[in-house]
Nucleic acid binder design. Structure first.
Lengths: 133, 133
DNA sequence: GCCGTACTACGAGGGCTATCGTACGACTCG
DNA sequence: CGAGTCGTACGATAGCCCTCGTAGTACGGC
């Protein structure tokens, strides 16, 4: 399928980098005031994303994407991190070949005091209740 | 399929206030232990459902579906209430031609202490911040 | 018995989401 | 430079979700 849209791209093509994802490699984050509760709840309503957030909170620092051993492919992992970033839950910063992911804890606490701790506590309780660690 | 629709309580039913309450129509609710945090968060990630829950919490009692003036049709309203019920957020009981909707506050507080209050507070803060009521 | 009210069931449409595979770009180290 | 690692972009697929309209059921009152 896929018509032969690309013909040995490395050959005679101009190879202009288009700088779309190049350049400073900045990632779009919502401003603090733009974070919406519904988006945060939706982001955390996925088991995989909730697990990511729990691990980030447990570590307290910044972890790379590859640090997580998730039962999905890299593409899907990228997708989930993007959802978390665009909802304002985490902040992503490039650092060499890896990316550092960290909770936006202070901002979230400012917007919704106590919510993050309540959610993490609830998730932890449920994990214990369901036989998890 | 409806072979069990023969409940027909019209006869000499005990009319216990708590059990079958006011009708032969029972609605399926998840047991307390079956309530999952992800489902609750997903249920509350919809603006309409979050609004319903806020009104229920503000009233503190049981409100009928038709009490809410939502910008959707009745079918959609039914759908949203069903999502809230099946996720364990609210309890629905028939009473005559109407249905009473109430938060399952005690059970939720038992499972996830403080979570509901945090969520309601966060929703209230956001409503104020966004110029709403 | 009959009608109005309150809500449900079912089916359909349109959009979003989760997942994957493949191809590609950016960076580091030999 | 070349190879390897880390992550992204794009296309595709399947499934879920929100919405609606129509038709139907249960209850209460006339």
């Amino acid at each position: 399928m896929r018509a032969e849209g690309l013909v040995r791209k490395g050959a005679a093509v101009t190879t202009t980098p288009t700088a779309v994802a190049a350049g400073g490699r900045d990632l779009p984050h919502p401003a603090r005031e733009e974070i919406r509760l519904e988006d945060v709840l939706h982001a955390l309503s996925d088991p995989l994303r909730l697990r990511i957030v729990r691990e980030l909170a447990a570590d307290g620092g910044a972890l790379s994407c590859s640090h997580f051993d998730l039962p999905v492919t890299k593409s899907t992992t990228t997708h989930h991190f993007r959802v978390l970033r665009e909802s304002g839950v985490i902040r992503q910063v490039y650092r060499g070949t890896t990316k550092r992911n960290a909770l936006r804890r202070e901002e979230l606490d400012g917007l919704f005091p106590g919510l993050l701790d309540c959610l993490l506590a609830a998730a932890g309780r449920q994990a214990v209740r369901l036989g998890g660690s």
